[in-house]
Design a binder for these strands. Structure first.
Lengths: 235, 235
DNA sequence: TGTACATCAGTGAACGCGCGTTCACTGATGTAC
DNA sequence: TGTACATCAGTGAACGCGCGTTCACTGATGTAC
């Protein structure tokens, strides 16, 4: 609740000054509270301390506001993933895992963005701008998968990078949806979602023939850990 | 659209005879069309050809109807998974994969149940009956994972079955949510969701140390396929 | 078998509510001269 | 620098709508005797 609360007319004067932004923030808060279906245009106006007609100066309708949020969400998502990937430093495998963690962190820290992006029922494929932003975000995962695929040890068939990317995305989305957020509907878990995802990704990569160790010097091969990628698990 | 359409008063007489069931079916249809948020009590009554007050004879309120649907969904889900698992016949690995396919098939064929169960925002953990049904369904996946874990080849650390079950569930849920249904928001995919999931599960199991072949006679070890678990992938 | 009565499962009218949206308006701000 | 005017970003009242829910009611069904 750090964003600007209802601002009173008296404190503010006739013009709001930054209403568009205030509406986006208000909607974000409402979506985080009640889900993408439970947010109303009128409510957003109310939270921004403005008459119910005012939002129409900035958004054609409720859907346009929702799309704006999803758009911005994809952009931030892309940034977060790009930063986590850090162009594969210090080594491809550990950078790849960092991307997975960043994925979950985003879903957890920005539930409103996340649900506007993936659970609002917005027809992403009918909105070219939104589609492009979504593709750019997925592009990071895909690029990471390409780099990983290129590292396939000799003698092992190289997996299609797109498939790898889709697997990782699906696993991350599944973990995030089922366990990753504070919502009422989420299930309890005997381990942190991050651990669950990390272990899953490690097992998956091993299944593709990648060694499990992250070399301190780039890509130096090492022995595989005898204990496996999962740590101690509370029963 | 095979379920009973609006039944007119004249054809039906004063008593409906099967209103509770008709309301559930109507709600199911509405949820499939517009998502769990977009279904209204009034609409369901209308589709059943009944006055808006009639549903109150059968459900305390809208939420109770929604819970009933989720409840029934979990029960059917459990049945479907149980049947697919078939107690691990003819061999554990292929039965396990069949469970994955059944998961996706359910999400695809029963989108209304699926979204009532996982995307409606119902507080599953606050409703003991619902929670129990949900646990029973997950129990099938978990039991299958137990059996699989028990098969770990000698020399390989045995993975925690619960973790395996959660991984598989997450992957299946992720694939189903992102690509598995006909909704507007779903993304296009260069391969069938079933193939995507199957390949993912196979890679995952290989990562745990399981051989990839399904023996025709139970559990007979074979050579691992040189081409890997993924087939030809359209680029 | 017939009748009286209780119970059940619907009706339909009404309510209060909040929503999305439109409208003529008005106060504040920016700009040309 | 001052003034006239255009434009912008709000107001607030009003609308029609569909929703959830309640209410006294009534037709149909089941049951005791």
């Amino acid at each position: 609740m750090s964003w600007r609360k209802e601002t009173r007319r008296a404190e503010r004067g006739y013009h709001h000054g930054n209403l568009k932004e205030a509406l986006l923030q208000a909607a974000l808060g409402l979506i985080a509270e009640k889900g993408p279906g439970g947010f109303t245009f009128a409510d957003a106006a109310r939270m921004a301390g403005v008459s119910p007609a005012a939002p129409y100066r900035h958004f054609r309708d409720r859907d346009e506001l929702l799309s704006s949020i999803a758009q911005r969400g994809f952009e931030q998502f892309e940034q977060v993933l790009t930063k986590a990937w850090d162009d594969g430093r210090p080594d491809t495998v550990s950078a790849f895992e960092r991307v997975g963690k960043a994925y979950l962190a985003f879903a957890r820290n920005e539930p409103a963005y996340y649900s506007a992006m993936f659970e609002s029922g917005l027809p992403v494929d009918l909105n070219p701008t939104l589609m492009a932003a979504s593709e750019r975000a997925f592009g990071i995962i895909r690029a990471a998968a390409e780099r990983l695929a290129a590292l396939t040890p000799p003698g092992v068939t190289r997996p299609p990078a797109l498939m790898m990317a889709l697997h990782i995305w699906s696993l991350a989305h599944g973990v995030a949806s089922l366990f990753g957020r504070g919502d009422a509907a989420r299930r309890k878990l005997p381990m942190a979602p991050e651990e669950l995802l990390e272990a899953g990704v490690l097992i998956y990569l091993r299944g593709l023939g990648f060694s499990q160790e992250r070399p301190t010097s780039p890509e130096k091969p090492t022995e595989s850990k005898p204990s496996g990628p999962w740590g101690p698990v509370p029963k």
